[in-house]
Design a protein around this nucleic acid. Structure first.
Lengths: 145, 145
DNA sequence: TCCCACCGCTTGCTTTTTGCAAGTGATGGA
DNA sequence: TCCATCACTTGCAAAAAGCAAGCGGTGGGA
C-alpha cells in the first residue's frame, strides 16, 4: 500500500488539490488535528469513522510527503510520534470550514441547527472569525490531549 | 459499479460531505460545471484529467442521487442529456474556490501567479466577489457550449 | 426509407485500493 | 523480567478504478 509518486492529472489547482486530498480519509485526519486537536496515531484511530491502521499509516505518510503534516518523536514519551500541521496544512482550514458549512446545511441528518448553519453560511464575518480562531489554535503550541 | 446506498460513516458534517464528494472525480465534475460551464457527458469526458466513461456515468448518477446535479433531456437535441447544478450543487462553489485558492499556492507546479494567489487568499473581498460572480453565473440559464 | 455518425452508457477484464484481522518489533514502566 | 502499549506490517478478500470495446437509441442526409 505504497504512498508513491503522486502523479498530477493536470495543472488545474483544484485537480492538484484533489490529487493530494481527494479521498475519504485525508481531510478527516486534518479535521481531527484542526477541530479536535488530535496529534497521535491512536487518537486518529479512535475517531468515529473508524479508519483502519494500514490506511491511517498510508494517509499519514502521504500527508507528510505532501508537506501537509510533519511527524516528530514525542519529546515527553519516546514511544509515540507527534503529528502536527505545517503551514501548508493550516492553510487548509478554510476548505474544512466550507466543507463543514456545506455539510451542515446539505448533507446532514440532524436538521437541528440547519438554519443556524445557513445563517452562518451567509454571515461571512462569523465564518472568518471561526477560521481565524481555528488557525490561531493550530499555529500555537499544542496542548496535550 | 453501482451508485448504491450511501452509508454515512458518522454525523460529522465534514465526514458527511466527504461521503458524497470524497474522491478524485466528483468535485472535478462540479468544477467543470461551475468554472467551465460544461453541461454534457462528452464535455466532461474531454476534460484534461481524462475520466473513463464508466466512472463518469457512476459519478453523474451519484451526484444526481445526492441531489447535487440534475439531468434532463436536452430540449434542443433529444440525443443528448443536459446536466445542471441544483441549489445544493451551487452551494459547493465556496468549497471549490477554497480548494482552488489553496491549490494555487500550495499544490501548484506553476509558481507564476502564486503570489497573486496568496494575495487573493488574504483578500476576502476579492474571494467573495469571485464566489458571487460564479454563483450568479450558475443560477442563471446556461449558455450553449 | 436506409444508412451512418454520434449520443450516453454498458460490459468484460485487469490492476489498484480498501477493509479487516492478526501479528510485529521497539519502548518504557512495574 | 514481564507486560502493556506504541506505531506500523502483513495476508487476504472485497470493492473500486482504469482501460478498451461494444451497444441501443436518435437524428440527419441521401
Amino acid at each position: 500500500m505504497g504512498s508513491n509518486a503522486e502523479t498530477r492529472r493536470s495543472g488545474c489547482p483544484i485537480s492538484c488539490s484533489l490529487d493530494l486530498l481527494g479521498d475519504k480519509w485525508s481531510l478527516l485526519i486534518v479535521r481531527d488535528m484542526v477541530m479536535l486537536r488530535k496529534h497521535y496515531f491512536k487518537e486518529f484511530l479512535a475517531s468515529a469513522e473508524g479508519i483502519a491502521t494500514n490506511i491511517l499509516t498510508d494517509r499519514l505518510n502521504r500527508l507528510e510527503g505532501g508537506g501537509i503534516i510533519s511527524k516528530q518523536p514525542d519529546p515527553e514519551n519516546r514511544r509515540q510520534i507527534v503529528y502536527t500541521l505545517t503551514e501548508k496544512g493550516v492553510a487548509l482550514i478554510p476548505v474544512l470550514v466550507e466543507l463543514m458549512s456545506w455539510g451542515k446545511i446539505y448533507a446532514g441528518t440532524t436538521s437541528v441547527d440547519r438554519d443556524k448553519a445557513r445563517r452562518m453560511q451567509q454571515d461571512r464575518r462569523y465564518k472568518q472569525r471561526v477560521i481565524r480562531e481555528l488557525t490561531e489554535g493550530c499555529t500555537s503550541t499544542p496542548g496535550r490531549s
